[in-house]
């Protein structure tokens, strides 16, 4: 059996990585909230969603988290009537990305919170480590 503390470090690191990837995808969604198609009548940017899954790390018997996949949101696009827009089709309708800013902000907040929690665990595991080493100092 491996050292549970180093397993704790590895697990916390996997949490940090997963949440930061999620944050990156949220950033992409928000940045592209108004990215329309380049051609008239084409599809605009489609919102992306991250999904997580638990994996067992056999070396340390730890349940890590990893990104299962980054899927695309299948919800319909927003449409707007704007004949002057370069991406408008022959009826003058423009398709806008299916990104909801509010949902993205909520998602970002949740990712932030989980990231902080993992970071806190990392810090505490380090403290535990330090305490154990301090025993040697007598």
């Amino acid at each position: 059996m491996s050292d549970p503390l180093s397993a704790a470090f590895r697990i916390a690191a996997s949490g940090l990585e997963a949440q930061s990837t999620r944050m990156r995808v949220v950033a992409e969604n928000i940045a592209n909230a108004d990215s329309t198609a380049a051609t008239p009548g084409g599809d605009p940017f489609r919102r992306k969603i991250v999904s997580f899954e638990t994996t067992l790390d056999r070396a340390s018997d730890a349940r890590l988290v990893k990104i299962r996949r980054v899927a695309e949101d299948e919800r319909p696009f927003r449409v707007e009537y704007d004949p002057a827009h370069p991406a408008a089709d022959d009826k003058g309708v423009v398709k806008l990305p299916n990104v909801d800013q509010l949902v993205e902000l909520a998602d970002m907040r949740e990712a932030n919170r989980s990231y902080q929690a993992s970071l806190q665990i990392f810090r505490q595991a380090r403290e535990l480590h330090a305490m154990t080493i301090d025993l040697l100092k007598g």
């Binding site: 050292d3 549970p4 503390l5 397993a7 704790a8 470090f9 697990i11 916390a12 996997s14 949490g15 997963a18 949440q19 999620r22 999904s51 997580f52 899954e53 638990t54 730890a62 349940r63 890590l64 988290v65 949740e110 990712a111 989980s114 929690a117 993992s118 665990i121 505490q124 595991a125 535990l128 154990t132």
Partner: peptide, 24 residues
């Protein structure tokens, strides 16, 4: 006691890392 505590810490780390995993 320390063994128990460190194992517990790694179990808590698992729980927190998987805080957003569906069905966990």
């Amino acid at each position: 006691r320390l063994d128990w505590l460190t194992t517990r810490q790694s179990t808590i780390a698992e729980n927190i890392a998987n805080a957003n995993t569906p069905g966990f």
